[in-house]
Simulated assay, not measured.
Amino acid sequence: MSPLTDLSLERHGGVAVLTLDAPERRNALTLDMAQAMIDACDALDADATVGAVVVRGAGGYFCAGGERGTLAAAGKDPAAPDQFSGMGTIYRAFHRVGELRAPTIAAIHGGAVGAGMNLAFATDLRIVARDAKLASGFIPIGLHPGGGHGVLLGRTGSREATAALALFGQRLTGEQAVAHGLCFEAVDAEEVDARALELAAIPGADPELARRTTLSLRTELGPPGLPWGAALEMERSAQMWSMRRKDLAAGSE
């Protein structure tokens, strides 16, 4: 794994905490930071003792999107191979977080804008500060959304909420995001990290079961989602594995 660039990684038992650590720019993403995130995810997946991952931002802000210099450089010649590849690295960072084998939680303080929204919505669950601001932010600055923005929002919240954010430049507070089904729970800002860790500790206590259940749930929910009959068959082997494991453990006591 390459050295982490503007990221830090901590462990709390079976829970890993991945922190975007560039508060001077509100954790806006650069190419190096995106590559470090990809590398960190590879390391987390390779560690079978990781049962949950919390993604957060340092300095009281989750992520302000793509770093302006990075976006400006890409805009000078978007079709240039290095620029096209660089934007792909940032896209890959979101996708890699979404692929993590362990269940993931975004702990959102302050705000998430643009690419920061993509990162937050790549996770399985979001805990958000009541007063945090969530915004797509693309159209107001003259940019088309990227990173699969519509899918990430639409698979979580309603079509109305997705359109309000992505097409009409609306902003939501943390409490409004919960009301629209975009986040699970809104709490006071000082409670966000503790609540995320509290939830993550449950799957973190049993990493193997957590990883198997995460794969099943994501496959069933999609997009596209599985029909019920297919889900019944998909879950059968994993559930029976868990029953056998539990029985063997009881028998060895």
Rank of each mutant, 00 (worst) to 15 (best):
residue 166 A to W: 03
residue 154 G to P: 07
residue 156 T to P: 03
residue 167 L to Y: 10
residue 156 T to Y: 04
residue 182 L to A: 04
residue 171 R to H: 09
residue 186 A to N: 05
residue 168 F to Q: 11
residue 169 G to M: 07
residue 173 T to K: 05
residue 194 A to G: 12
residue 177 A to E: 00
residue 177 A to D: 00
residue 159 R to Y: 07
residue 192 V to E: 03
residue 188 D to T: 08
residue 172 L to V: 12
residue 179 A to M: 10
residue 165 L to R: 05
residue 177 A to M: 07
residue 195 R to E: 11
residue 165 L to Q: 05
residue 158 S to T: 02
residue 178 V to P: 13
residue 163 A to Q: 05
residue 178 V to S: 12
residue 161 A to N: 02
residue 185 E to I: 11
residue 159 R to E: 02
residue 190 E to R: 13
residue 162 T to R: 15
residue 161 A to Q: 07
residue 171 R to A: 12
residue 163 A to R: 10
residue 193 D to P: 02
residue 153 L to S: 08
residue 167 L to F: 12
residue 156 T to W: 10
residue 165 L to V: 12
residue 167 L to R: 11
residue 156 T to A: 10
residue 193 D to M: 08
residue 196 A to I: 00
residue 169 G to K: 00
residue 170 Q to I: 09
residue 162 T to I: 14
residue 173 T to E: 03
residue 187 V to G: 01
residue 157 G to K: 00
residue 163 A to N: 10
residue 186 A to T: 01
residue 185 E to A: 12
residue 197 L to C: 01
residue 184 F to H: 09
residue 164 A to W: 08
residue 161 A to I: 03
residue 184 F to A: 08
residue 185 E to S: 13
residue 163 A to C: 06
residue 190 E to N: 15
residue 182 L to C: 05
residue 183 C to T: 09
residue 179 A to H: 13
residue 165 L to P: 06
residue 182 L to D: 05
residue 175 E to A: 00
residue 179 A to N: 10
residue 170 Q to S: 15
residue 169 G to C: 03
residue 161 A to F: 04
residue 185 E to K: 13
residue 160 E to Y: 10
residue 185 E to Y: 09
residue 171 R to N: 15
residue 174 G to L: 01
residue 157 G to S: 14
residue 194 A to T: 15
residue 157 G to M: 09
residue 177 A to K: 01
residue 192 V to N: 05
residue 166 A to T: 14
residue 156 T to L: 13
residue 171 R to G: 10
residue 196 A to K: 01
residue 173 T to C: 01
residue 177 A to W: 03
residue 168 F to V: 07
residue 155 R to V: 02
residue 181 G to H: 04
residue 160 E to R: 11
residue 159 R to K: 10
residue 189 A to Y: 01
residue 165 L to I: 12
residue 179 A to C: 07
residue 173 T to D: 02
residue 157 G to W: 05
residue 155 R to I: 08
residue 170 Q to D: 14
residue 194 A to D: 14
residue 172 L to R: 11
residue 167 L to H: 12
residue 190 E to G: 14
residue 175 E to T: 04
residue 167 L to M: 05
residue 186 A to K: 02
residue 162 T to N: 14
residue 193 D to I: 01
residue 166 A to Y: 11
residue 156 T to I: 12
residue 153 L to K: 01
residue 184 F to M: 05
residue 189 A to R: 05
residue 154 G to H: 05
residue 174 G to Q: 08
